[in-house]
């Protein structure tokens, strides 16, 4: 009898099929590995580095590591929680994440993953960069202060919407999400709030106008249960407090 190949994740057998990564196999088996730039609907990116796991003792990104039989993978260990916390803290000081003033607070994946890994404070020295807010579009706003460069909107607009509205430009700490128009304004693009790109942002960078603070505190997506139980904001339907169109 041919048994399905599997690897061991935190002591648990995780079966996989050819072509799956540690992340997709774990997800299918119902095991949560924290992540930000990964979205099962898109090609893995491997940039946020939050999904780091230890594969046979070596730290690797779960979203880009092909699943293979016999691997021993560790995820929920203090060493990795600390590593992930450090990366989350870097993201928090890199941008301007003022949760009390953000419409997406409570339904923000960045926040939820930070809760999940037990981040209490940003720890590092803040950069306080100056970023614009683009409200030129009649139905959507982009607050670049909250962008974590996951490129999900870039990928969604290019690969699903076929519009290529977004891009990343620049190098190092100067890398920026930009809008592909000569003016750089969202209002000058064909972007629509029905686009996939409007449904995948893990933070409050891309916002739908006239719809802020709809859910009372205490009832928001991640208020009561951790992201490991609730799922990614991009996968949860709008009617249940997520971003996915019903």
């Amino acid at each position: 009898m041919n048994e399905q190949p599997h690897f061991i994740l935190d002591g648990r057998r995780v079966p996989f099929e050819d072509g799956q990564t540690l992340m997709t196999a774990a997800l299918e088996a119902g095991v949560y590995i924290p992540h930000l730039c990964f979205n099962p609907e898109f090609t893995p990116h491997g940039s946020c580095r939050v999904c780091l796991v230890k594969v046979n003792g070596r730290v690797q990104a779960a979203c880009t590591t092909p699943a293979a039989a016999g691997l021993t993978v560790q995820s929920e260990i203090e060493e990795l929680r600390e590593l992930r916390r450090g990366i989350l803290q870097m993201l928090f000081v890199e941008g301007n994440h003022v949760c009390p003033a953000c419409e997406k607070s409570g339904a923000c994946q960045l926040q939820a993953v930070a809760y999940y890994v037990g981040m209490l404070a940003p720890h590092y020295t803040h950069f306080y960069p100056r970023h614009p807010v683009d409200a030129s579009h009649p139905e959507a706003v982009i607050d670049f202060n909250r962008c974590i460069l996951c490129e999900l909107c870039v990928r969604a607009s290019r690969d699903v919407d076929g519009k290529n509205v977004f891009a990343i430009q620049g190098r190092g700490l100067q890398a920026r999400l930009v809008v592909n128009t000569p003016s750089g304004q969202l209002g000058a693009t064909s972007f629509s709030i029905d686009d996939k790109a409007a449904q995948v942002c893990p933070t409050g960078t891309i916002l739908i106008k006239h719809r802020g603070y709809e859910t009372p505190i205490g009832q928001r997506l991640y208020d009561r249960k951790p992201i490991s139980m609730v799922g990614d904001v991009a996968q949860v339907p709008e009617s249940q407090g997520g971003r996915r169109h019903d």
């Binding site: 940039s47 946020c48 890199e94 190098r171 190092g172 700490l173």
Partner: peptide, 21 residues
């Protein structure tokens, strides 16, 4: 390294500047 980080991944993009500082 601050100047040469490509900016793709978080720990290099942010970490190189934190280290320099």
């Amino acid at each position: 390294f601050v100047h040469e980080s490509c900016g793709f991944c978080t720990p290099c993009r942010v970490g190189t500047s934190l280290m320099r500082d």
